[in-house]
Amino acid sequence: MSAITTSQLTKIYNHVPAVDNLDLTVEHGELFALLGVNGAGKTTTIKMLSCLTKPTSGDAVVLGNSIVSASHAVKEITNISPQETAVAANLSVSENLMLIAGIYGQDKRTAKKSTHEMVRKFSLDHELNKKAKHLSGGMQRRLSIAMALISSPLILFLDEPTLGLDVLARRELWKSIRELKGNVTIILTTHYMDEVEALADRVGIMGNGRLKATGTVAEILKLKGTNRLEDAFITLSGGVL
């Protein structure tokens, strides 16, 4: 059984399909990157798979649970770091982490232990008692991802996790994401080719709500007869080289 299987997953807004009969499969422990221009349907796909929004038609099975009929079960085993940094502004770093840990069912002792683990993992030690609104953008993003991981999800959705970060912060975050591979199934959406090349086991290129191509980076390069992922992406997205 794959970790995620979508079956003609569709989302229509105002008669326009944002996601159009999407069929994709993600295997256990892999990092699957969804690449696409703005409006390609990446975030809408993530929203449906994380049960933030219901599909118009079709379905997806996430570790044996349908997103349509068993969304509560899906929510218990998944977590998301949204595109916009989603933290409780007036709570401290530790309070934010404890909150999410508790919401996902951890008792106080376990939540404290998990919090310390995440703080160490994401180098938030010096910011523990700082209010989230006083953190830098990069730190807020790290906290957001830590909040996504603290519940020990089996599936993690990262929606453009390095958007707006400087190169040093990006590289640090890549390192943290790489350490998760194999243990957690990760769906990552991004605009950055270098991020896909650095992190992804497999890639799905989306355009106009449809999956244009899937495969490893090497497979996609071979498909388009190029040695640059950007060129392959532009060709598949209908752009001009």
């Binding site: 977590n79 949204p82 916009e84 989603a86």
Partner: peptide, 15 residues
């Protein structure tokens, strides 16, 4: 504020 900051979106994906 929760709604427009996506914090609520995060909580909507929780149990």
């Amino acid at each position: 504020k929760d709604r427009t900051s996506s914090f609520l979106a995060r909580l909507f994906t929780s149990p």
